Amino acid sequence: MAIQHMNEETGAAVADLIHLREEFIKTRLIFVKGDRMIRILKVLGATDADLDAMRTVSNSLRDDPTLPFRKSKNGRFCFDFEQSKLRRLEFQPFALSEEEDFVRHDSGQIRRFREIDEDLQGNTTLHALFIFKALIFHGVSFKQRPKLNYETENFICTLFNLRTVTNKDLIGEPALEGVHSDGVDFTMTTYLGSENMTSDSAETFIHDIREQNALRWNQTNPEYSLGRYQHRDYLDTLLFVDHEKKHSISPVYALDPKHPATRDVLIFFTRKPVVEGHISHPYDSLNPHQSLPFEIPLA
């Protein structure tokens, strides 16, 4: 009976994945509620223990290199579709430029983040999230960016674990840069949790690609508005084609101003490797990580 029940669960999750992929191909964006994600991720290998552990993984984050209201870590991975596996890549600095539709005080700066550790890398929920993203985007056609290598089947994914903090001295901005793109092919954001955050915080606004960069979320042209989404429940996930849309996010507000408010997310930036002339060309190694090796099958 247990095997039959599992088979039914697996079949339902596969059917749901097929539906989501079809929706993504059509609309170039999907927003998947957390309870739906949990059912899918468990079939993809996430354990109950790791689903619980993921809720608090952001407690180990460190100060961000350029934003005082943020805690952060990142890590680089390769969707190696040629060998049907995901693998960890060695540390590299990170940069986003105005040329990539990212206009902020640190645009073009070479930033060095603390690295994601085994507490996140070893969590089967993360593994299932990687597989989920691969199943949705692999083989989907999309608008290509300049200075990326579209001759290879593989993609580089820079994973960020971020905590945005609002306190009596700072307003936490999940997207201080205003309207922007992330300089990649596919962006996925997954919500891990929050504390003391108001119900109207951190709304994500999707804009037509014609919208002006760096505008605040509340200064944009309504004619260019393509929708709004809010990550409120554990594992709420948004996935979209980054170079076909822009987005902005409202601040994190504290429910009780006397205490800090926090918001924790994972962000999966996925793009082709860069070519010469791209700002990240010196920082786009495909070498494996030596001290934190990692590899899981994608099929």
Rank of each mutant, 00 (worst) to 15 (best):
I116F: 07
T166G: 01
S194C: 13
L239T: 07
V32R: 10
L170Q: 14
I30Q: 10
F268I: 04
Y150G: 01
T220S: 05
P174Q: 06
K245D: 00
L215Y: 09
I116C: 09
V32K: 10
R232M: 07
F113E: 01
Y234F: 15
K147W: 02
R28K: 15
T66Y: 10
L235R: 07
D119N: 12
A214E: 09
K73F: 03
H243S: 14
S72W: 06
Q144G: 10
M197E: 14
S72E: 11
L86H: 08
H243C: 05
L266S: 09
E223P: 00
H259K: 13
D233F: 08
R39P: 00
A254W: 01
H289S: 14
A254R: 15
E9T: 06
L135E: 09
F294W: 12
P288M: 01
A254N: 02
A261D: 01
R55D: 04
M54S: 06
E23I: 07
E100N: 08
S248K: 01
P93I: 02
H19R: 14
D16C: 13
F160W: 04
S201V: 10
R76G: 08
P257H: 08
P257R: 06
D106I: 05
F91P: 02
N149W: 06
P251G: 04
H278Q: 06
T66D: 14
F79S: 00
N123V: 08
V140E: 06
D208S: 13
I136V: 15
S181M: 15
D80I: 02
S199W: 06
L255A: 13
I18H: 03
T66G: 01
T56A: 09
